[in-house]
């Protein structure tokens, strides 16, 4: 659990982050969104003390993050940034081994960890371990960057626009991978982005920042249903609202008893995908199946449209 308690950061008296308080639950993905200059990057950099707060406190599992030196704190918190920041003079394996090395792990343990992570990120350890970063593609570099951040098995992973430099296809894949990894390790992830689609796709909770303050902090659906300020409304976008709602709900939740014809849809696809399928195939209802392929009923166009309507 990360407790952010009335934290502020001022540069020459000008507040960049102004009196922000929020609690981040363990094993969740929290996405901080906002325009550039809203203070979102500064906020997460205060969690691992790359920026020292002017006021307030941040506690990790109840322990003040200033109770140990900054560098020791940072070894316990994963950190991944835009443009990956890989060390160009170290091989992929050496890059991933950075924090375990700093922590003084035994060589065998480090090697095992590197191999595990490379395999997890679908990079063949024998092929990719000895390569230098400049020999990898952009998507591979980004994966190594995240692998490096996870190498010391941190409870918390901070990510600052980690997918900002990737093209849309690789970015979508990287987002899927991240969710899978998060489930695998149960890591608490705090991610900064200005891409609302990314935020809705990844977040358990979204914090919207504007001019140094958090204007709304809650589950994605809540932001769509009751935006706290006009700024949040603008950020979500009028034309996007219904689709945002559908994008964060699973098809299974809209399933009802009954039959339908044609190709089925899996219960864990989003309702937005179900809608797209319905429109594209010109049907009124789709059969829904569970993850193991057991029929669960159907989902109708009507039901989906109702769910996309403004909540009363």
């Amino acid at each position: 659990m990360i407790e952010i308690d009335a934290i502020s950061k001022r540069y020459d008296g000008v507040p960049v982050v102004d009196n922000v308080s929020m609690v981040i639950e363990p094993r969740t993905v929290t996405v901080v969104v906002g325009t550039s200059g809203s203070g979102k990057t500064t906020l997460i950099r205060m969690i691992n003390r790359l920026v020292e707060a002017s006021e307030g406190a941040i506690r990790l599992d109840g322990e003040d993050n200033r109770s140990i030196p900054g560098y020791e704190l940072r070894r316990r918190i994963g950190y991944a940034i835009q443009g990956h920041g890989l060390f160009p003079h170290r091989t992929v394996a050496q890059n991933i081994a950075t924090v375990p090395g700093l922590l003084g792990w035994k060589k065998a343990r480090i090697d095992a960890k590197v191999e595990e992570l490379l395999t997890l990120f679908q990079l063949e350890p024998k092929t990719f371990g000895p390569r230098y970063p400049h020999e990898l593609s952009g998507g591979q570099q980004q994966r190594v960057g995240v692998a490096r951040a996870l190498a010391a098995e941190p409870n918390v992973l901070l990510m600052d626009e980690p997918f900002g430099a990737l093209d849309p296809i690789i970015r979508a894949k990287a987002q899927e991978d991240l969710l899978a990894i998060q489930k695998h390790f149960g890591t608490t992830i705090v991610l900064v982005t200005h891409d609302m689609n990314e935020a809705f796709h990844l977040a358990d909770k979204i914090a919207v920042m504007d001019k140094g303050g958090v204007v709304q902090y809650g589950p994605p659906a809540e932001l769509v249903r009751s935006p706290a300020t006009p700024f949040v409304e603008t950020l979500i976008g009028d034309a996007e609202r219904p689709f945002r709602l559908l994008s964060i709900a699973k098809t299974g939740a809209a399933a009802e008893p009954g039959d339908a014809d044609g190709a089925p849809i899996s219960e864990d696809r989003s309702q937005q995908e179900a809608l797209a399928d319905l429109i594209w195939s010109g049907r009124d209802a789709l059969p829904v199946i569970s993850k193991n392929g057991v029929p669960m009923g159907r989902v109708t166009l009507d039901a989906i449209l109702k769910r996309a309507a403004r909540p009363r």
Partner: peptide, 18 residues
């Protein structure tokens, strides 16, 4: 030096000397 690399080194918990 590339900023992102220095940032990453700090973020990884290296001391200034390291």
């Amino acid at each position: 030096l590339p900023r992102s690399v220095i940032e990453a080194a700090r973020g990884a918990g290296m001391t200034n000397f390291q």
